[in-house]
């Protein structure tokens, strides 16, 4: 990953983010029923999308790591989990801020909230494992296995929690099969925000990934140096 690619991605993120902020605060009309609070929706939904995508990325890189055994997949999974954790936290925080005036409660045990919370706990467990097993050589295998079973568990979590209870508004795909965004400017704002957050995630991911790649190379060099020293010592 060259420094130029990362820097241009950072620049793209900046441009998209400024555009998204402008659209959210100036361009888009205020929602008729909920008022100004509804504008947080344009950050909330992209964060949720990114958090779920990052989670899928953790599982996919886990599968590739166990299959091919290349360290690069482990580094990618670690970077995706760390970045995904940030966005998963943001989903919960922005959701709470919205829910207080609209539902009258910071938290309800609705199906999507519960699913996101469990996802967040799974991210927590995964990152704790990585932190605690840092000195174990098999940490990459452990993390890959946990990432895979966690992702495999997500469909069952969604089904069971939905059967349990649900009150979350279905905005993007309603029960009638249409979407709830009446004004075309709302759709445009959501799309730009989606692009901005996806670029932000990609940029953070690349930065973290590049750091982890460097760390891997460094540890390889250190091992090689140790071997060379031992060989020289033998002479």
């Amino acid at each position: 990953m060259s420094r130029n690619t990362i820097n241009s991605l950072g620049l793209l993120t900046l441009v998209l983010m400024v555009a998204a902020l402008f659209m959210v605060f100036v361009y888009v009309p205020t929602e008729a029923v909920q008022g100004i609070v509804q504008r947080i929706f344009y950050f909330h939904v992209p964060c949720a999308w990114v958090a779920f995508a990052a989670f899928a990325l953790v599982a996919i890189s886990g599968i590739f790591y166990l299959w091919l055994g290349q360290q690069v997949w482990d580094d990618l999974g670690y970077a995706a989990a760390e970045s995904g954790m940030v966005f998963c936290t943001l989903v919960l925080v922005t959701g709470s801020i919205w829910a207080r005036p609209i539902w009258g409660a910071w938290w309800t045990w609705d199906s999507r909230l519960t699913t996101t919370l469990i996802l967040w706990l799974l991210y927590c467990g995964y990152l704790m494992l990585r932190a605690m097993a840092d000195d174990t050589p098999q940490v990459a295998r452990f993390a890959a296995v946990v990432g895979i079973v966690a992702a495999a568990d997500v469909p069952i979590i969604i089904v069971s929690v939905r059967l349990w209870r649900t009150i979350h508004p279905a905005v993007l795909v309603t029960r009638q099969g249409t979407h709830g965004l009446e004004d075309p400017r709302m759709v445009a704002t959501l799309l730009v925000s989606m692009a901005a957050f996806t670029a932000l995630f990609a940029w953070l991911l690349m930065l973290r990934f590049a750091t982890l790649r460097t760390r891997t190379r460094l540890s390889l060099l250190a091992r090689e140096l140790g071997r060379t020293r031992a060989a020289v010592g033998d002479l």
Binding site: C124, M132, A133, D153
Partner: peptide
């Protein structure tokens, strides 16, 4: 996994309980 990690006893419930949630609800 947890048996081979430092302080793994603490890790096992942290990993197992969130994964067990769907079965727990049901």
């Amino acid at each position: 996994i947890s048996g081979r990690v430092r302080a793994g006893d603490l890790l096992l419930p942290l990993l197992a309980v969130p994964l067990f949630v769907p079965a727990l609800i049901a």
